[in-house]
């Protein structure tokens, strides 16, 4: 089942992962067990994914994150909101972000 995502909620990177750039890839490395799917996998975020991730550390709702990105990239808010929700859904599934409500 896909996890539910609300634009009103704040989502933050899990303390059980580390995100870093290696060999030109922005990757998320699990620190604790239960994060990610398989032990031999590396998780990388593409450019739009990285831009969203970078804004998750601040205590902002996902809607505010989307609004900022929409201004930065001069892109339609509706599309960015959809992208943000899509990413958070994928990250929640892997327990790489936490829902702070």
């Amino acid at each position: 089942m896909k996890p539910e995502v609300s634009l009103n909620n704040i989502y933050k990177p899990s303390e059980d992962v580390v995100a870093r750039e290696v060999a030109g890839e922005f990757i998320i490395i699990p620190v604790a067990s239960g994060v990610g799917d398989a032990e031999d996998e590396i998780f990388s975020l593409n450019e739009p994914g990285k831009s969203i991730w970078d804004k998750l550390s601040a205590d902002k709702s996902l809607r505010d994150v989307a609004l900022e990105l929409s201004k930065e990239f001069e892109a339609p808010l509706e599309q960015i909101e959809k992208d943000c929700a899509g990413l958070i859904q994928e990250l929640l599934k892997r327990k790489m972000v936490v829902d702070k409500g």
């Binding site: 290696v22 030109g24 996998e41 998780f43 990388s44």
Partner: peptide, 25 residues
């Protein structure tokens, strides 16, 4: 919907390719 998270197996990680081209820790 676009995929933002790519998962790849460790041997597929581009670091190995980069190492073939020159020094890369």
């Amino acid at each position: 919907m676009a995929n933002f998270v790519n998962s790849m197996l460790l041997p597929e990680f581009p670091l190995w390719e980069k190492l073939k081209k020159g020094r890369q820790l």
